[in-house]
Write a protein that binds this DNA or RNA. Structure first.
Ligand SMILES: [Zn+2]
Length: 485
DNA sequence: CGTGTTTGACCTGCGC
DNA sequence: GCGCAGGTCAAACACG
């Protein structure tokens, strides 16, 4: 199984490369070649019709060869795809059957100390999520929906699901109507969370969404108050976030996201959404794991994961994206030692950390510094995407969930092809990096969601999926009166 | 006046 | 059952 999976991942990469070659190089030059040759023939007229004929013949032959190659590639692609789905089926059968003794690794790096087999396996499982997303279209991009997928049968369309969840929050036990919601509540409990650590002087991180503060608490072990926000882009959006400064380093802002948006998200929010979704995929793929700690590196990105519960909350698997400039070489144990109060002895759910460490630090004002920070992250991510198939599939899972979401919203039912589509999208995103860079440089970065949300809704904007990184921004929420709770 | 924040009260789940 | 801690509510308040 593992060998197969490993091959699978390799094939995946090869497949991608082949696609690139096929589309990017071979056909084009040959065509122009032919054109040139034909042109030449016309110019020379009847001087040597036989030789030009020969040339034409060779061009034809070449064309034929290329066609054959293309067919071969397509065949390979299809067979690989079918194999891929087979493996996925097997995988899901195993998963459903019983808890797998062999474990799912969250590591993504090839130079990972935890080994590359697990890496490949992880890829497959992430892709499984991807496939799931297509099969059960209509689930929103986010954290909990996927988790629910893996824990229960989801039959509700996303909107219903989310609004129910939103209203449920308000319900008091005395209402007495929550009889049949027991199951759901349990599933809700198993929501994945993604927390993002950023070095940021601003009170909150700008992530493209609109948030309304609804509470503030001093949590135990950290004198810095924790602020509670809910998404107000849509009135019934269930997404929450918690913002708290790190006790160890006050300049580090820890933002924890929970839930999935049930509305089109702003361009600037897609970064966070896709990242958190990808992170959630990782988390989900690792949710059955019992490995204590893992860490790895891709192109300088430190991906580490560990089994620890990030909060006192029951059953809240948490994944941490570390965007601070902290040393990426730190082992995951060191990493978790930075959460002295949040590590109970018996963790119930795995928690995963992705270290997107960047040497540059975001600022409260949108300065050049910030742009460079952003760009470096973009570069790093792009590199990771281009060079690592597993990371690519991870991100593409996130993207396909996004695509699936928007297409479901539009009810065109075309998300079957989300698999290849997302891959292509990924490629497009990579190819258009320079484009993205320029868009980052421009004011498009701060486009309001009023205009951008409709663009997201139309779903085919690959450039809108650029990894524009997170922004530090001052919001109105912050003043120094905090801390009285 | 509408919108968003503040903050004390309340609810819930968990450990003892 | 009790206390603790995290999370949420909603009235009061601030601000444009
Ligand atoms: Zn939302």
């Amino acid at each position: 199984m593992e060998v197969l999976l490993m091959n699978m991942a390799d094939d995946h990469a090869v497949k991608q490369e082949e696609n690139i070659t096929q589309e990017g190089c071979s056909p084009e030059p040959s065509k122009t070649d032919i054109g040139r040759k034909v042109h030449k023939t016309v110019d020379l007229k009847s001087s040597s019709s036989s030789s030009s004929h020969d040339e034409l013949e060779t061009a034809k032959e070449e064309n034929e060869r290329l066609k054959m190659m293309l067919e071969q590639i397509q065949k390979n692609y299809k067979s690989l795809q079918s194999r891929f789905f087979e493996i996925i089926k097997q995988g899901s059968a195993i998963e459903e059957g019983s808890e797998e003794p062999e474990l799912v690794s969250l590591s993504l790096g090839r130079s990972s100390p935890t080994g590359s087999k697990k890496d490949d396996k992880k890829t497959t499982i992430c892709s499984k999520t991807e496939v799931d997303d297509h099969n059960k279209s209509g689930l929103t991009l986010g954290l909990d929906s996927k988790f629910q997928l893996s824990t229960e049968i989801v039959s509700n369309p996303s909107h219903e699901n989310s609004s129910e969840e939103a209203s449920k929050v308000q319900k008091r036990p005395s209402s007495g109507e929550d009889h049949e919601e027991g199951v759901e509540q349990k599933s809700q409990v198993k929501r994945a969370r993604v927390s993002v650590r950023t070095r940021c002087d601003a009170p909150t991180m700008y992530d493209g969404c609109q948030w309304r503060k609804y509470g503030q608490k001093i949590s135990k072990g950290n004198p810095c108050p924790r602020a509670y926000y809910r998404c107000t882009v849509a009135p019934d959006c269930p997404v929450r976030k918690q913002v708290q400064r790190s006790f160890e380093d006050m300049s580090i802002l820890v933002t924890t996201y929970e839930g999935s948006h049930n509305h089109p998200i702003p361009v600037s929010a897609t970064t966070m959404a896709s990242t958190t979704a990808a992170a959630a995929s990782m988390l989900l793929s690792g949710s059955s794991t019992s490995q204590p700690a893992l860490s790895t590196e891709i192109n300088g990105l430190n991906f580490s994961s560990s089994l620890h519960d990030n909060s006192r909350l029951p059953s809240c698997p948490t994944i941490t994206l570390d965007l601070t400039g902290s040393p990426s070489s730190s082992s995951s144990f060191n990493y978790f030692n930075r959460f002295p109060t949040n590590c109970p002895a018996t963790p119930r759910f795995p928690s995963t950390n992705l270290n997107f460490s960047s040497p540059l630090v975001s600022n409260e004002s949108f300065t050049q510094e910030h742009y460079f920070y952003q760009q470096s992250l973009t570069d790093t991510l792009t590199k990771a995407i281009t060079s690592d198939p597993s990371f690519r599939s991870l991100i593409s899972a996130a993207i396909s969930s996004l695509v699936g979401h928007s297409s479901a919203k539009h009810g065109d039912g075309t998300d079957q092809k989300g698999d290849s589509f997302s891959q292509n999208l990924m490629q497009a995103a990579i190819n258009s990096q320079s484009l993205n860079d320029s868009s980052l440089r421009g004011s498009s970065y701060f486009k309001g969601f009023e205009s951008s949300s409709s663009r997201i809704g139309s779903s085919n904007q690959s450039s809108s999926l650029s990894f524009s990184s997170f922004n530090a921004a001052s919001t109105l929420a912050f003043d120094n009166k905090q801390g009285k709770n």
